[in-house]
Design a protein around this nucleic acid. Structure first.
Length: 202
DNA sequence: GTCGAGATTATCT
DNA sequence: GATAATCTCGACC
């Protein structure tokens, strides 16, 4: 399905490779259009920044596995674990375009009106693919959730991450990657600390 | 189209 | 008890 050695690099290098890749999840296939890299212990925005815990243990393990976690009480997000065993980097799957299993994805995401919204956003993508919290640690080379890397590299842009609280949300960590012009890329802006400034100076 | 606020629970200190 | 890699909805332009 994919060359495991490709994922043994830090997530900032792996992230662009995942753009345009396909994720197959329980009858639905998504083409990734937006991802974010997390650099483990070096990265204030990463769950692994403060060391290994029960939740992020998978991130410290071998690459090519799925790291899922619960957030905000109601949502699940999914990552692809990168770097060799013992190094905790991962790529968060932020958004994608449903290319197969469209009707099933619509059922799972009954609240979204447009097809472009089916997998636009980390938690939405997880729901569309039927990924559950207990898929944590699943092998992406075989199983219910699989990854299929694109045959050729996609054009991409990169910029600050969104939704990350604290120091990790600044533009000091421009580790969000997306395919420009794609309608399925999340519209969310970087978390700005209540900026209500004069619009004239923009 | 943009902006702001509330929901809700596993995990960590 | 506090926190959180988010989503949805309502108000307004």
């Amino acid at each position: 399905m994919f060359d495991p050695e490709l994922l043994e690099r830090p997530s900032v290098e792996v992230a662009p490779l995942l753009l345009g890749a396909f994720v197959h999840g329980r009858g639905v296939t998504v083409r990734l259009t937006e991802v974010e890299a997390y650099l483990g212990e070096m990265d204030p925005g990463s769950h692994a920044f403060r060391g290994q815990t029960r939740r992020n243990a998978v991130m410290f393990g071998a690459p090519g596995h799925l790291y899922t976690y619960f957030t905000y009480g109601m949502h699940v997000c999914a990552n692809v674990v990168c770097s060799p065993d013992g190094v905790a980097t991962a790529v968060l799957l932020r958004a994608g375009e449903v290319v197969d299993g469209l009707e099933l994805a619509r059922e799972r995401r009954s609240t979204s009106k447009r097809d472009a919204d089916l997998a636009r956003g980390p938690a939405r993508l997880v729901v569309a693919l039927g990924i559950r919290l207990d898929d944590d640690g699943a092998n992406l080379a075989s199983g219910d959730i699989t990854l299929e890397l694109a045959h050729s590299a996609s054009e991409f842009r990169q910029g600050p991450r969104t939704g990350v609280s604290g120091a990790g949300g600044t533009d000091a960590y421009p580790w969000r990657f997306w395919i420009p012009g794609d309608p399925t890329v999340s519209p969310y802006k970087a978390t700005v600390p209540k900026r209500r400034v004069a619009p004239s100076t923009l």
